[in-house]
Design a binder for these strands. Sequence first.
RNA 1: GGUUCCGUAGCUCAAUGGAUAGAGCAACUGCCUUCUAAGCAGUAGGUUGAAGGUUCGAGUCCUUCCGGGACCA
Length: 586
Amino acid sequence: MPIEIIPLEPTLRSAIQQAFLKCYNLTLSEAACSLQVTRKEFEGTFSLPVFPFCKSCQAQPTELAETIGQWLQTHTDLIARYHVINGFLNLVIDAAIWMAILKSIADNPSYGHLPKQKRRVVVEFSCPNTNKPQHLGHLRNNFLGSSLAAILDAAGYTVHKVNLINDRGIHICKSMVAYQQFGGDATPASTGIKGDHFVGNYYVKFDQVYKEELALLPEGETPLILQKAQRMLVEWEKGDSVVMALWQKMNGWVYDGFNVTYNQLGVTFDKTYYESEAYLLGKSIVEEGVHKNIFYKRTDGAIAVDLEGLGEKVLLRSDGTAIYITQDLGIADWRYADYHFDQMIYVVGNEQTYHFKVLFAIMSQLGRPYATAMHHFPYGMVDLPDGKMKSREGNVVDADHLIDEMAGTVGNYMGHTHKTEGLTQEELEKLHHTLAMGALKFFLLRVAPQKRMLFNPNDSIDFQGDTGTFIQYTYARICSLIRKAQANQTLDPPSIQLSQLEQALIFQLYRLPAAIEEAAVTYMPSVIANYALELAKTYNRFYASAPILREANPSIRAVRLLLSVCVGRVLKKSMALLTIELPEKM
RNA sequence: GGUUCCGUAGCUCAAUGGAUAGAGCAACUGCCUUCUAAGCAGUAGGUUGAAGGUUCGAGUCCUUCCGGGACCA
């Protein structure tokens, strides 16, 4: 049974409430005594700004802080000292407490996993189209989704990761038409091109031809190649055998390509849905809406819904074919039947905010009980210096290419060091990949999700400074220490006088559950990224300034080693929440 | 036109309404005979887009405007 970790904030808060009651006869709500982390230029761990209480206590800030500080020091054993500066009461936690916290963290193998809650969450992400390979923007989505799922899991929820493949629709028909027209009998195997790239090339080809034809046509006329695609969509929905065969063949190529990429990314799903399997269900929900008089048929034959404030929204084209939202209606019902979720999170770019408002409004009008459980988690685009990435125009940062390029950069760097001697070629390649993915994932995850990101292909992603590599490096150094430590080195050291830096490190270890909690409620993996970065920075400062294995005093040596072990474990845990692997050597 | 997100150092980003707004990159100085220098220590870099307002206290909340993106028309 692991030792209970002392809950510092709640204990302090109730002590402060008591202090105000005893000293000023003032009853404070728990929320009112909000503790903050002391700025690092002052001594202390937690600070209480006393300004808000001055009026009710009829006291000057300094006098008030002094009184409360005095009371806390004499009536609790958490506080060693206190300082009153500029109306802030800075509380210094007793060093013995830190020692106890370190031991309880070391003793708790599942540290960083919050208590299990009865809450079932479905996270939908990735959701690629089967007409093009994935680019940097898709990577942000994949990583945000995977990371969010890991964070919610650590926060105690039951999490299901699902993918939804956009495998049908007019855009898919476009690459099919282009292949029919220009592909001959070329295949990914015959050309040596990865399947998703192979199909993506025909999507680009379609757009070229479309634009050429459009330029030659009078205003308002539809290019022949687009007419073909539109006809093909109708034939597809009828189940035409030639069209279906082509569709299955081309999608198969794309899935082969996707699997390679997902493997590289380390992205997995509990279930994959296909829009082709849901659009009929979607259409039946449209019928249901018409029956209930929530939807109506327009004069042009399209089915639409009038959503107050959101305008009119078409749900089924006049030719009867399904559109994006038709499928989403079906998928929503299907998924609820599968999981009976308490919360459904759609990880989709912020360009679709309106789409999801519409979807949720419709589900609510249809009286679905889970409508209020659905949430859109919008994130910003990854833009290039000259604007948005557009697959059909070919100006994208291709995911596969970027990963290869980064692994190559790592490989070149490695050529100049000798730290990885003894690794086999296979292990070395795995290490290059781990480092490349670490840098890439961290680069995309450390930024607040709602922010749009700019990526300049000319500036490569860094491996130095505030990067995933920095954290991986810190971890590798800790592993090296542990390898070199004497086998008889105890990990149950006696209590010693801890330095400022050691106390600060323990405090940061102690903050892990709070960071997970915050990341989980705000849906922000960046909270974890920044937490891990700060921890690694503090540790590196400690590592540079204090001898660990070289320390002569065995008690101090043991404490420092234990501290290193704990930092390593917490770094590993935090990075796992970002789906980043840490190598033991680099 | 409407809705919405964003605007912080040259660049990329931090900062639960709290103290002198912090990091990294790039630039410049130091530190490898010692636990991994992908590191550490330091110098320099700011009217937080602008103006009002709320507050003991605003980068953060409210209003208006400016700039950028996205979406709906």
